[in-house]
Nucleic acid binder design. Sequence first.
DNA 1: TAGTACCG
DNA 2: GAGA
Length: 205
Amino acid sequence: MQPPLPDGIIHLPMCLSAEEQNALLEDIRAIVAEAPLYTPRMPKTGKPMSVRMTNCGSLGWVTDKENGYRYQDTHPFTGKSWPAIPDRLLALWEEHSSYPHPPEACLINFYEQGAKMGLHQDKDEANFDAPVLSVSLGDDCLFRIGGSSRGGPTKSIRLSSGDVIILGGEGRLNYHGVDKIYPNTSPLLKNGGRINLTLRRVTSL
DNA sequence: TAGTACCG
DNA sequence: GAGA
């Protein structure tokens, strides 16, 4: 018997201790050294996003002008396979997702001061049964969540370093985005900014 | 419409 | 700055 899958929007404040956050940060630094952050571009228009990205896992989420949103198994600039997902993130997934298979993708988003992420759905996966698990590191942000269709009411919450958000079940396809980074609100990143890690199951299983 | 402008 |  398995525990039930998380349902709705679940916010776990201070899910990770300062020590865990620092250890995770070291893992991320090693990944970024191998798979550098790059500036993704919007489909068709080619407009740059303000957030820089990279991935770890067997698949990574990418976007560019020519081919749009998709998952692929290599870094778009180096052409190399993505680095493996760190064990501590796999453990976090096991603890909180209740999903019987490991995540395939971990999108790493880096927000510097002024960076934003418009309201969107995570819907490029073939699997909507598995929850999406997101980890915040570094400066606080204003996170906005709506319903599963555009144009409805939204609510905003402030996320801090070490917080975990789970979008599962009825909340899996809810719109969400980042309106603002609050500068100098965390000592974790010496140069400031915010890192978001998003763990996802891409294929069905 | 994973951005941006603009309105209040 | 916040919400649609």
